[in-house]
Amino acid sequence: MDPFTITDSNPFAQLLGIELIEAEEGYAEARLPFRDELSSNPHTEIAHGGVTYALADHVGGMAIVSAAEEICPTVDMRIDYLAPARSDLQAIATVVRNGGQVATVDIDVHDGDDTHVATARGVYKVGRSSTDSTDESPWSKGHDERE
C-alpha cells in the first residue's frame, strides 16, 4: 500500500486539498493550504475545527499505512485544539504503538506561522491479512494491495 496513492485517490482528501509530503516507517507529514472555503468565520481567516481534525486523521492514517502496509480505518480520534489556525496547516504523525489489532498514532498540527494549533491521538484498526474475509471491507475496495 502506497500512502501517496491512497492520498491522491481519496476524494475527501482531494476536496480539502491535503498534500502528503512524506510517509515512511510509521511517520507521515502532510499539509493543507488554507483557502476561504475552509474558514469557520466569514469575517476572518480561521480554519474550521473539522478541517484541522480531518487533516490530523488523514496524516495519522497515512503514518500507520506506511508501517502496516494495509488500509487501517480509524477506530477513535481525540483532538485538543490549542489555538485558532489562521493559515496553511501542516501535520506530523508518528506511530506510537503498532499492536496486533490496533495502532496508536500521535499527531501535531501547526499553522503557517508555526503556531501549534492542535494535538491529537488516533487509534487505527490493523492486523487484517490479505487472506482475511475482512479484505472485502469498504476501505480496501479500489486499492490494489500489491502496490
Results as ranks from 00 to 15, higher is better:
54 A>Q: 01
12 F>V: 14
52 T>W: 02
37 E>C: 02
95 V>A: 06
68 A>T: 08
130 S>I: 13
69 E>N: 14
46 I>V: 15
1 M>K: 14
35 R>F: 00
129 S>C: 11
23 A>T: 12
23 A>Y: 13
77 M>G: 03
79 I>K: 06
13 A>H: 02
51 V>H: 02
104 T>G: 11
49 G>R: 09
125 K>H: 14
110 H>A: 09
28 A>F: 00
11 P>H: 00
55 L>E: 01
141 K>M: 04
146 R>D: 14
18 I>S: 03
78 R>K: 15
5 T>H: 14
121 R>K: 12
107 I>K: 06
100 G>N: 05
38 L>D: 09
16 L>C: 08
24 E>A: 09
114 D>S: 00
83 A>D: 11
33 P>M: 02
103 A>K: 14
21 I>T: 11
101 Q>A: 14
68 A>C: 14
96 V>E: 15
133 S>V: 09
3 P>K: 10
112 G>N: 09
78 R>C: 12
140 S>Q: 12
84 P>M: 05
94 T>E: 15
140 S>A: 10
85 A>L: 01
2 D>C: 02
33 P>G: 04
114 D>G: 00
12 F>K: 06
10 N>S: 08
124 Y>F: 15
41 N>W: 05
16 L>E: 07
113 D>C: 06
15 L>K: 03
98 N>V: 07
111 D>M: 07
102 V>K: 14
30 A>Q: 01
116 H>S: 11
45 E>A: 08
106 D>G: 10
121 R>C: 10
106 D>L: 10
144 D>P: 01
17 G>I: 03
23 A>F: 13
92 I>G: 00
131 T>E: 13
142 G>L: 04
30 A>P: 11
22 E>Y: 14
124 Y>M: 12
83 A>W: 04
94 T>V: 13
21 I>G: 01
33 P>Q: 01
96 V>F: 03
98 N>W: 02
111 D>W: 06
2 D>V: 00
84 P>E: 01
111 D>K: 04
82 L>S: 04
138 P>N: 04
146 R>Y: 11
49 G>P: 06
44 T>M: 14
139 W>V: 07
116 H>V: 11
83 A>N: 08
36 D>H: 08
91 A>S: 11
80 D>A: 12
82 L>M: 10
31 R>W: 08
52 T>F: 00
34 F>P: 02
74 T>N: 04
49 G>W: 09
36 D>S: 13
23 A>S: 11
